[in-house]
Simulated assay, not measured.
Amino acid sequence: MGRRPCCDKVGLKKGRWTEEEDDRLKKYILANGEGSWRSLPKNAGLLRCGKSCRLRWINYLRADLKRGNITSEEEDVIIKLHASLGNR
């Protein structure tokens, strides 16, 4: 038993995302919201799995995602929080 597969694995693209796919995913989510990740690829016209779309959005394409080096102020905050909370 368990959850049924999110998609038929036949005919789906795997590997690197193209800029066109990134643009389609961004435009769809900005217009319609995240909603159901299972139905998103079909509605957005992508030949990807819903899980792949979710991970691409969360890890790479979100507008509020900060990438790059942290500032010295951010490093101080991290050190202070680690001193008070530990590894929780």
Rank of each mutant, 00 (worst) to 15 (best):
M1C: 06
R3N: 12
R4G: 15
C6Y: 07
C6Q: 10
C7I: 13
D8Q: 11
D8G: 10
K9R: 14
K9E: 15
K9W: 10
K9V: 14
G11S: 08
L12T: 11
L12A: 10
L12Q: 07
K13D: 14
K14T: 15
G15H: 00
G15W: 01
G15I: 06
W17S: 10
T18N: 01
T18V: 02
E19T: 12
E19S: 12
E19A: 14
E20L: 11
E20T: 15
E20Q: 10
E20S: 13
E21C: 05
E21W: 00
D22H: 07
R24H: 06
R24C: 09
L25W: 00
I29M: 02
I29W: 00
I29E: 01
L30G: 03
L30K: 09
A31S: 11
N32Y: 08
N32A: 04
G33E: 07
E34P: 05
E34F: 00
S36E: 06
S36V: 03
S36T: 04
S36H: 04
R38S: 11
R38E: 12
L40S: 01
L40A: 05
P41Y: 03
P41V: 08
N43P: 00
N43R: 12
N43F: 01
A44G: 06
L47E: 13
R48Y: 00
C49N: 02
G50C: 04
G50S: 05
S52D: 10
S52I: 01
C53V: 03
R54H: 07
L55P: 00
R56F: 07
W57N: 02
W57G: 03
I58N: 14
L61A: 05
L61G: 03
L61W: 02
R62Y: 01
R62G: 03
A63K: 11
D64Q: 05
K66T: 13
R67M: 14
R67K: 14
R67A: 11
G68M: 08
I70E: 09
I70G: 07
T71R: 01
S72F: 10
S72T: 14
S72R: 11
E74K: 07
E75A: 13
E75V: 08
E75M: 10
E75S: 14
D76S: 15
D76Y: 10
D76G: 13
D76M: 14
D76I: 14
D76K: 12
V77F: 04
V77P: 00
I78A: 09
K80C: 10
K80R: 13
K80D: 14
L81E: 15
L81G: 09
H82F: 11
H82V: 11
S84T: 12
S84C: 09
L85H: 09
L85M: 12
G86A: 08
R88Y: 06
